[in-house]
């Protein structure tokens, strides 16, 4: 594959750049359409916010977070009650792996704990809920995954949220920090990972809107939200909209992410993993509406 340049990005010809690239057989088989020619898709993304979930010191109100989580999964699944919503996603026989962002603005532990509590309440044995962050053997041992990334910009990939979450499942994670960062969606299609993610739940309680690498408190803010979808690309696309709007609000002028998060568009156009087009995303909102940024 030739080098993706700014000119490709500006022209909107990323699809043509990758069309002639040599995909691995597994990835090529997984791709269900590329570029502008791909079939239409649709996705639902739920955004739930509550002003009370963080206090002035950014501490999490556990009870409030539990309510937000219940609101999120019921709106995501269309079920009336939280237990039924989780039961519609997972069975008592499942081995459920939770995949969190482990470093540099990590997923709130309180959110992972709340998910475990809700799963147990829905009848999943505690011993069958495991931490699946790490090497590929972790997801291989699971029958289902919940992606629990924190919403954040990343200085090497533009966005370091959903598409980047499974990077450690690759044999060579570092290569995705360089020329191949546009191909992060490959990691979602690896044997042992593909088709196992039943819920993407983005921790947008306190996102990071500039690239870091280490979190700079000037770019953290209390958004107090959860973003959920069964489409990982759509979840990233919504997070990207929020991050982009926050950056513009901070500077009072356009402040695009650099490098641009090519991985989101490519996850759609090259790998067929979901939709990155806001026109194909049904955004369902609930709760606090101030400074929603989307």
């Amino acid at each position: 594959m030739r080098n993706i340049t700014r000119r490709d990005f500006v022209r909107g010809t990323l699809g043509s750049v990758v069309a002639g690239s040599a995909l691995t057989p597994a990835v090529a088989a997984a791709a269900c359409g590329t570029g502008a020619q791909r079939p239409p898709r649709s996705a639902r993304v739920v955004l739930v916010r509550d002003e009370a979930v963080l206090n002035a010191a950014h501490d999490v109100d556990i009870a409030c977070l539990d309510r937000m989580l219940a609101e999120t999964v019921t709106r995501m699944t269309g079920q009336k009650a939280s237990r039924a919503a989780w039961q519609s996603l997972f069975k008592p026989t499942d081995i459920v792996g939770l995949v969190t962002t482990p470093h540099l603005n990590p997923t709130h532990q309180e959110l992972a704990d709340a998910v475990v509590k809700a799963l147990v309440d829905a009848g999943i044995p505690r011993g069958q809920i495991v931490n699946a962050q790490g090497r590929i053997d972790k997801p291989r041992a699971c029958t289902a995954l919940i992606a629990l990334p924190a919403l954040k910009a990343h200085w090497l990939t533009g966005l370091g949220t959903v598409m980047k979450l499974y990077i450690t499942y690759s044999d060579s994670p570092a290569r995705y920090h360089n020329e191949h960062n546009a191909d992060l969606a490959e990691t979602w299609l690896l044997p042992g990972v593909k088709d196992k993610t039943r819920l993407v739940l983005v921790d947008a309680l306190r996102p990071l809107c500039d690239k870091g690498p280490q979190p700079d408190p000037r770019y953290l803010w209390d958004y107090k939200g959860l973003i959920a979808s069964t489409d990982p690309v759509a979840a990233d696309a919504v997070g990207l909209q929020i991050i982009t709007a926050k950056r513009k609000a901070l500077r009072g002028e356009d402040w695009p992410l650099s490098p641009p998060p090519l991985c989101v568009q490519m996850a759609d156009e090259k790998f067929g993993l979901g939709t990155s087009r806001m026109s194909e995303i049904e955004l369902v909102r609930a709760g606090w509406t101030a400074q929603a940024l989307i």
């Binding site: 080098n3 700014r6 650099s258």
Partner: peptide, 15 residues
């Protein structure tokens, strides 16, 4: 190029 790209995206690789 990683630092250049974080200021101004030129190309994914080092050109």
């Amino acid at each position: 190029h990683l630092v250049l790209n974080s200021a101004y995206f030129l190309a994914a690789g080092d050109v």
